[in-house]
Design a protein around this nucleic acid. Structure first.
Length: 259
DNA sequence: ATGGTCGGGTGCCGA
């Protein structure tokens, strides 16, 4: 079972790039973030025509997440628990029925800039709720993949120019510590496992020719529970997706499980 | 030090 995560930065703006990538890469499951679409505005047909079921948790204009799956889905749940007042669409989870059943969560973690400020507070609060949700899910001892745009640069080696990110909400100590707390519950960073060296990036700013200069950061992650890590086969990043026409500012990251 | 680029809720906001 190959599971990919991709912040598409607007699904309607990506109606060439995303179906073309799915047709070429053929992941079993694609977890999409920043669809920037309400549920009833999501263009389902191009994906259903490629054999994918479509489950969305959208909102008008910004945010929004979706699960595309060529395998059956069960027990779809929308919204990160822990704050009934939070109406931002950033979390959807489902069980994928392959040779093994795998629980997947698709997340779009808040950016948090400018920091300090209310947006950074919202980010840290959201990360505390994410840790609580993970603590709730782990005792089931089923293969679990928490994947998406984490908006966290885990280490200096995950940025081409770490000094440029000092003071940014993606790289501040509290956000990185919250990411480590999540990892230390027992998760494996799949892309780090496959590609431990520096220079592996999933995002390049649209501005100032960042991609051409390879001035990137690694902020899209696939975290594997112990039972999912036991099924790990391979992982990677498809940086070629940034080179086509009208690309997202993020590229897909993926993991292959023996499931 | 400044400005640079996208997508969408639009002539501004979030990233």
């Amino acid at each position: 079972m190959r599971i990919a995560t991709w912040n598409v930065n607007g699904i309607r703006a990506r109606l060439h790039a995303v179906p073309a990538w799915l047709a070429a890469a053929r992941p079993d499951v694609a977890l999409l973030q920043e669809i920037k679409s309400a549920d009833d505005g999501f263009p389902r047909a191009p994906f259903e025509d490629l054999g994918y079921r479509v489950e969305t948790h959208g909102q008008k204009g910004f945010n929004g997440v979706a699960i595309l799956s060529r395998l059956p889905l069960e027990d779809v749940a929308r919204g990160l628990p822990g704050d009934p007042a939070d109406d931002q669409a950033r979390w959807i989870e489902a069980t994928v029925i392959g040779a093994r059943a795998v629980r997947v969560a698709c997340l779009y973690l808040p950016n948090g800039n400018p920091a300090p400020g209310p947006k950074y507070d919202y980010k840290l609060g959201w990360m505390a709720r994410l840790e609580a949700r993970a603590r709730d899910m782990l005792p089931a001892e089923e293969p679990l993949v928490l994947a998406g745009d984490y908006n966290v640069i885990p280490q200096p080696s995950d940025a081409a120019r770490p000094e440029a990110w000092a003071g940014d909400a993606l790289f501040l100590p509290e956000a990185r510590a919250a990411f480590r707390r999540l990892l230390h519950l027992g998760f494996t960073d799949a892309v780090r496992l496959a590609l431990p060296g520096p220079g592996v990036y999933t995002f390049w700013d649209y501005q100032a020719g960042a991609f051409e200069r390879n001035d990137g950061i690694r902020i899209d992650h696939l975290l594997l529970s112990p039972q999912a890590a036991d099924l790990y086969l391979d992982a990677g990043v498809d940086a070629g997706a940034r080179a086509g026409d009208k690309p997202s500012d993020h590229v897909p990251a993926w993991v292959e499980l023996d499931a």
